[in-house]
Amino acid sequence: MKAFILALLVAVGLPAIAFAQGSAAPQPGQPGPRPGTIVVQPGQPLPPNVRRLQPGDTPLAVPAKGGAQAPELLQPAKPEKFPHGDRVESKLDSKGIPASKPLALLFWAFAAATIGGALFVVTRRNLIAAVMGMVGSFLGISAIYMMLYAHFLSVVQMLVYAGAIMVLFVFVVMILNRPEDEPVAPTGRIGGVIGGLAIAYLVGRLVMILIKVRPPTGEAANLAPGPTSLGHDWGSVKAVGTDLFGPGLFPFEAISILLLVGVGGAIAIARPLHEDEPASTSGADNV
């Protein structure tokens, strides 16, 4: 009964006290700005992502209501005269996206390692073989990152994925120490076939979109990236670190919470069932 009265008081009182003044803030006759606008009080400095409209700015086009324009925007880009013509190629530059033959061959070699390793993972019956395929795949991915000028990420990929996560997998495989009975789900059902076809169609569409991706800056995008504004090499540890401890600081710190949850949670679940815990009662399996 006491709990009920307390609840009654809280239910009635709290929201009224908490929000009464706050809700009165929008004055009548002064409609709030439309959502999406940023309000800056006079005298306050501008937030970092906002700048005042300059005379030379292009106003954003607002399409006519009704979506009359929408369908035509969805048309795929018109096929050009020769295939891949929409991809800008810089024949002179061999330092950017690999335009030279040896680099191209290296790309294919690492792509083959990536795909081959991945196929190994999903087809092997033996779990250790699957893990090894995964490591091979990560090796290829790491080299591909290097080609994308992501040097730091390339090293992290090897250290964290191949070095740490895969070792964890090997440990668990060893603990379980059990071969698989039935590696692949029984197929042949109509649903599986239809689902497979639908996925194949969607992936085909996705690949068509991806092949046609146009770099935003045209020719310049294919050149080797220049140094960052602080003079560090693009993608190097210094450059990524500067970003990580600048705008990326909040997520970088917040990820420690996530890792703590992972570690604490894994310990809570996987530690052995202690003697001091109560034995299983009839009800334990009930829900």
Partner: peptide
């Protein structure tokens, strides 16, 4: 919850303050 309510009353309706290099 109380801190959220207090801050709710600090922020003007419709205003957006960006924090931490526009992460939040």
């Amino acid at each position: 919850a109380i801190a959220s309510v207090v801050l709710y009353r600090q922020v003007a309706p419709g205003a957006r303050v960006t924090l931490f290099g526009e992460m939040l």
